[in-house]
Simulated scan of single mutants.
Amino acid sequence: MSQLYQVQQLLKTLRLTETSNEISKLIKAAETNEDSYTTFLLEILTYEQKRREEKQIEKRLKWATFPYHKTLNDFNLGEQESLSKKQLNQLKELTWIEQLFNIILLGPPGAGKTHLAIGLGIEAIKQGFKVVFTSMGELIHTLKTEEITRKSQTRMKRIRSSDLVVIDDLMFMAMDQREANLFFHLINDLYNNASIILTSNKSPSDWGELMGDASITTAILDRIIHRAEVIHLNNDSYRMKHRTSIFGSESVQN
């Protein structure tokens, strides 16, 4: 039994699994660089910590269930006249999550609401927060089936234990009485426990029509807007501006 094998097994026993898998390369690098014992030990511990953090981020990204991966660096701020670079940097700092503030992103389809919401969610995960992304349609379905399916129970448990919940396409469809009640109870559970990012193409003043109950709408708005920043992304659809045409530069009319 070689010493290297014994070292690998001891590292696994001590739950330093990442280092165990890489120890031979770390040893060779230390020998090449003629590192001191202290430097070598620091390299080992630093590597283990870095890999654990990376795996934790990978795990949280998987749990977040983003529909696609787009960071804030991919966000074209030049397309958004209503959002300055300073404001975007303030959002990126994420102090609003620590203060339990909510972010409401309003604007027409294709204005960049979902991209911005996902970018903030990814940034939050990198900074150690637990994040969940859900569309409004998916959320309502999960709430309605929570009592009867284990999958929905697990999903709702993650949502309620998150630091940041992103709800996309809020109020894109009307809710019945039961759905509105379930949504209210979730917002009530998250109130003072998590931050929420909401994206919607409808103003909060129009939400009442889609919920069908003025009292529930008022209760929901009271909890969401109590601490909230409302950002209007009123530019033309980014997807329409940058769409690919089968006709090249020619329009259908030409």
Results as ranks from 00 to 15, higher is better:
Tyr5Ser: 14
Val7Trp: 06
Leu11His: 00
Lys12Gly: 03
Leu14Asn: 09
Asn21Ala: 14
Ile23Gly: 00
Ile23Val: 15
Lys25Thr: 11
Ala30Arg: 06
Thr32Pro: 07
Asn33Gln: 15
Thr38Arg: 09
Thr39Ile: 12
Thr39Lys: 14
Leu42Gly: 08
Gln49Cys: 05
Ile57Met: 03
Lys59Tyr: 10
Leu61Ser: 04
Lys62Met: 10
Trp63Phe: 13
Trp63Tyr: 10
Phe66Lys: 00
Lys70Asn: 11
Asn73Cys: 05
Asp74Ala: 12
Asp74Ser: 12
Asn76Cys: 11
Gly78Ser: 13
Gln80Met: 08
Ser82Arg: 11
Ser84Asp: 07
Ser84Ile: 09
Gln87Thr: 10
Gln87Leu: 08
Leu88Glu: 05
Gln90Phe: 08
Leu91Asn: 01
Leu91Ser: 01
Lys92His: 09
Glu93Gly: 06
Glu93Lys: 14
Leu94Met: 05
Thr95Ala: 13
Thr95Pro: 05
Trp96Lys: 05
Ile97His: 03
Glu98Ile: 10
Gln99Leu: 10
Gly110Cys: 00
Thr114Leu: 01
Leu120Ile: 15
Gly121Ser: 04
Ile122Asn: 01
Ala124Cys: 05
Gln127Trp: 09
Gly128Ile: 03
Phe129Thr: 00
Phe129Gln: 03
Val131Ile: 06
Ser135Pro: 01
Gly137Gln: 09
Gly137Leu: 11
Glu138Phe: 06
Glu138Tyr: 07
Leu139Pro: 02
Ile140Cys: 03
His141Pro: 02
Lys144Ser: 14
Glu147Asp: 11
Ile148Met: 10
Thr149Gly: 05
Lys151Asp: 15
Gln153Ile: 07
Ile159Ala: 01
Arg160Cys: 10
Val165Asp: 01
Ile167Trp: 00
Asp168Arg: 04
Asp168Cys: 04
Asp168Gln: 07
Asp169Lys: 02
Asp169Tyr: 02
Leu170Lys: 07
Met173Cys: 12
Met175His: 08
Glu179Thr: 13
Ala180Asp: 04
Ala180Trp: 00
Asn181Met: 14
Phe183His: 05
Phe183Val: 11
Phe183Leu: 15
His185Gln: 12
Leu186Lys: 02
Ile187Cys: 11
Leu190Trp: 01
Asn193Ala: 05
Asn193Pro: 07
Ala194Pro: 10
Ile196Met: 08
Ile197Trp: 02
Asn201Cys: 08
Lys202Met: 12
Trp207Arg: 03
Gly208Cys: 09
Gly212Thr: 08
Ser215Gly: 09
Ser215Cys: 10
Ile216Cys: 02
Ala219Tyr: 04
Ile220Ala: 09
Leu221Ser: 04
Arg223Leu: 03
Ile224Lys: 00
Glu229Arg: 13
Leu233Asn: 00
Asp236Leu: 10
Arg239Glu: 08
Lys241Ile: 04
Lys241Phe: 10
Thr244Tyr: 09
Thr244Glu: 13
Phe247Trp: 10
Gly248Cys: 12
Glu250Ser: 13
Val252Cys: 09
Asn254Gln: 12
Asn254Val: 15
